[in-house]
C-alpha cells in the first residue's frame, strides 16, 4: 500500500511539473522554473511561521505569491536594469533562496521543516502523514490529496487556456497583435509553476523538482514534433519516472527523489541516443545513407 501511495503521489507531482515544463522549455525559460522552485522557499517558511501549521493552503498561497514576485523581479532586472536575463535569474533566486535558508536556521525550533527535507525532499514520508477527519476517519496521505488537487488545477488551466498559452509561446508578437495579453499569460503560467513547485516541495525538494519540470518534457521534445503528442508523452514519462524511480530506490535502499530524477535523466539519455528522428543513431544512419548515395 505504501508503494502505491508513494508512486501515485510521485506521478501526480511529476505530471503537473512535466505539463508546465513543456511550455517552459519551448519558451526557453527552463531556468526560470529552476529559479521559482528555489525562490519559493522563504514563502513557505514565512507562511509556516504565520499560520503556525503545515496546513498547506496558506503555504501554497504564500509560496505562490513569492513565485510570482520572483518572475516579476527577474523581468524587472532584465528590462529596467538592462541586466542579461540569465544574470538576473541568478541574482534573484539565489538571494530569495538564501533568505529562506536563513529563516529556517533562525526559526529552527519553531519550524517543523529541516533543510535536508527542503533541499532533497522526502517522499518516503508521504504514507505517514495522514489526513485524519474530525470524526477520526483516515482518508489517506495528505500529500496525495494536495498533489491531486494541484494537478486538477493545472490540467484545467492548460485545457482552458491551451490556445492562448500555445500562441503566446510560439509567436508572442502575433499574439499581442490579435489582442492576447502576453504578460498576463506569462504571469498566469508562472503562478501555475509556483503552485506546482510548492506542492511538490515536500515530496521531491527544491533541487530535484527541476528534474521533473525539465527532463520529461525535454525527452518528449526529442521524440515528437507534435505539441499535443509532446504533452501526452510527458504524462506517460512522468508516471514511468515515478514508478521506476521508486523501485530503483527500494532496490538500492537509497533516496527516492534521487532515484526518480536519475530515471528521468536516464530516459532522456535513451531518447537522445535512440529517438527515431533526432537521436544519435538515426542521425548517424542518415549520414551513412547520404554518403553511400553520393
Amino acid at each position: 500500500m505504501d508503494a502505491i501511495y508513494i508512486i501515485t503521489t510521485g506521478s501526480l507531482v511529476a505530471i503537473a511539473c512535466g505539463l508546465l515544463g513543456c511550455f517552459l522549455i519551448l519558451r526557453k525559460m527552463a531556468m526560470v522554473g529552476d529559479a521559482i522552485s528555489h525562490a519559493v522557499l522563504p514563502g513557505i517558511v514565512l507562511a509556516f511561521l504565520i499560520s503556525g501549521s503545515r496546513d498547506s493552503f496558506t503555504m501554497l498561497l504564500g509560496a505562490g505569491a513569492i513565485g510570482v514576485l520572483t518572475t516579476f523581479l527577474i523581468e524587472f532586472f532584465h528590462k529596467k536594469g538592462g541586466l542579461q536575463s540569465d544574470a538576473s535569474i541568478g541574482v534573484t533566486f539565489t538571494w530569495l533562496f538564501a533568505l529562506g535558508v536563513i529563516l529556517i536556521s533562525v526559526y529552527a525550533g519553531e519550524v517543523d521543516l529541516d533543510q535536508d527535507c527542503v533541499l532533497y525532499g522526502e517522499i518516503a514520508y508521504v504514507p505517514l502523514d495522514l489526513w485524519i477527519g474530525s470524526n477520526g476517519i483516515i482518508y489517506g496521505p495528505r500529500s496525495l490529496y494536495i498533489s491531486g488537487v494541484v494537478l486538477v488545477v493545472i490540467i484545467l488551466f492548460i485545457t482552458l487556456g491551451y490556445k492562448e498559452l500555445h500562441l503566446t509561446t510560439f509567436d508572442p508578437a502575433f499574439a499581442s497583435a490579435i489582442g492576447i495579453s502576453t504578460s498576463l499569460w506569462h504571469y498566469l503560467l508562472m503562478s501555475a509553476v509556483s503552485l506546482t513547485t510548492v506542492s511538490s516541495f515536500e515530496s521531491v525538494g527544491a533541487i530535484l523538482v527541476v528534474a521533473l519540470l525539465i527532463a520529461p518534457p525535454a525527452t518528449a521534445y526529442l521524440l515528437t514534433a507534435n505539441f499535443k503528442k509532446m504533452l501526452w508523452i510527458t504524462v506517460a514519462l512522468s508516471i514511468l519516472t515515478s514508478a521506476t524511480g521508486y523501485y530503483l530506490a527500494v532496490y538500492l535502499d537509497g533516496s527516492i527523489a534521487g532515484a526518480m530524477s536519475t530515471m528521468a535523466g536516464l530516459f532522456f539519455a535513451l531518447a537522445f541516443i535512440f529517438s527515431p528522428v533526432d537521436g544519435l543513431i538515426a542521425k548517424r544512419r542518415r549520414q551513412l545513407y547520404e554518403t553511400s548515395k553520393n
Binding site: 519551448l26 526557453k28 510560439f170 509567436d171 497583435a177 521534445y221 514534433a225 507534435n226 505539441f227
Partner: peptide, 13 residues
Amino acid sequence: PQKESVDWDFPAS
C-alpha cells in the same frame, strides 16, 4: 511579423 521572430523548431505543423 518577421519570420525570424519565431522559433521554427517549435513542434507544430
